[in-house]
């Protein structure tokens, strides 16, 4: 597992230059709530037919920040982005709410669960 730090501004360029669709398998987008209202957004990739080679791009964001979409580079990222929007209440370019949550359920359940 290798972690590469990026910023929200350059994450699109980084992923675009790195991602080759028949070499790297896109796993998912993950969010981890850190202290002081910081959200760590992770884009996780693994290599096809390699032994346990996982690369994580991560960026620190505030909840109010606009998180850029990578759906035009990786078409299957769209569903992970919708989950990120629902679970953390952030805004991701071109992704709408309501994959899992209803109007009257707890909004952004994972953002405030830090003890």
């Amino acid at each position: 597992m290798r972690k590469i730090e990026v910023t929200l501004e350059n994450v699109r360029e980084e992923i675009q230059s790195f991602y080759e669709y028949n070499k790297w398998h896109f796993l998912t987008i993950n969010g981890v709530a850190l202290a002081d209202n910081i959200l760590e957004v992770q884009w996780i990739f693994s290599k096809y037919e390699a032994m346990d080679e996982v690369i994580i791009f991560f960026a620190h964001a505030k909840y109010a920040d606009l998180i850029p979409s990578v759906a035009d580079i990786i078409p299957s990222a769209i569903i992970s982005q919708r989950e990120l929007v629902d679970m953390f209440g952030v805004v991701v370019e071109g992704s709408e709410k309501g994959l899992y949550l209803d109007e009257d359920s707890l909004q952004a359940p994972l953002s405030g669960c830090r003890i």
């Binding site: 796993l27 993950n30 981890v32 996780i44 299957s76 989950e83 003890i115």
Partner: peptide, 23 residues
Amino acid sequence: MYYVKGNATAMLERVRIKTPTFS
């Protein structure tokens, strides 16, 4: 895929479950 983050207490910080059908 499971992503687990702990902070040396009994409660975990984050458990991310990426399931096959989801992706």
